[in-house]
Design a protein around this nucleic acid. Structure first.
Lengths: 83, 83
DNA sequence: GTCAAATATACGCTAATGCGCATATAAAAA
DNA sequence: TTTTTATATGCGCATTAGCGTATATTTGAC
């Protein structure tokens, strides 16, 4: 399972899919990492102001990790979603 | 080039190495993406409060992208750096 | 060691997160 | 449809990023 994210919105989508796949609610996840349900909600909807610490907390709860790598050629889908 | 980041600090290190590899200063990078040199500095030193939008701006300037994937077994190095 | 360049900090400011708490809205179940 | 569950929003508050500007500190070249 690997997903490219070039915008906060894309991160949110990935997080949401993963959370749902694990059959968790935002409230449950929030409890695990001590974040409000509202905070998870904002992250998943793509708030650009979300803090790195919040993202890492959530990724930990979902057993995901973040990888940074050189950009690959962007697919048409990436481009349209950037704006 | 691919790097795992499990903490804001690790992200900072990756960003810094990449920036230096491109022979850019924080001030130059900041200009490209309209961020202050001080902001880049904080990101590179691992501020957990850094915003996602800021991270993406910087990654764009460095031609890097972010990938989210299932966690791999952590290497000893990862563990010690988590606390 | 000296000096210039790069990076880390500081101050005052504005804006926005994340908080607790509550509720409206949407989605799923009965 | 009615009821329950889940997600999105709202308010007031404390905290903090990021801004401009400026300066201390570190690093690197000479």
């Amino acid at each position: 399972m690997i997903q490219i994210a070039r915008t906060p919105k894309q991160i949110g989508e990935i997080v949401r899919r993963r959370r749902q796949a694990q059959k968790q609610t935002q409230t449950q996840m929030g409890k695990q990492v001590r974040l409000r349900q509202a905070t998870i909600s904002k992250l998943e909807t793509g708030e650009p102001g979300t803090r790195l610490s919040t993202l890492f907390d959530v990724l930990t709860a979902l057993d995901l990790e973040l990888v940074i790598r050189s950009r690959t050629k962007s697919s048409p889908r990436d481009i349209e979603e950037n704006f």
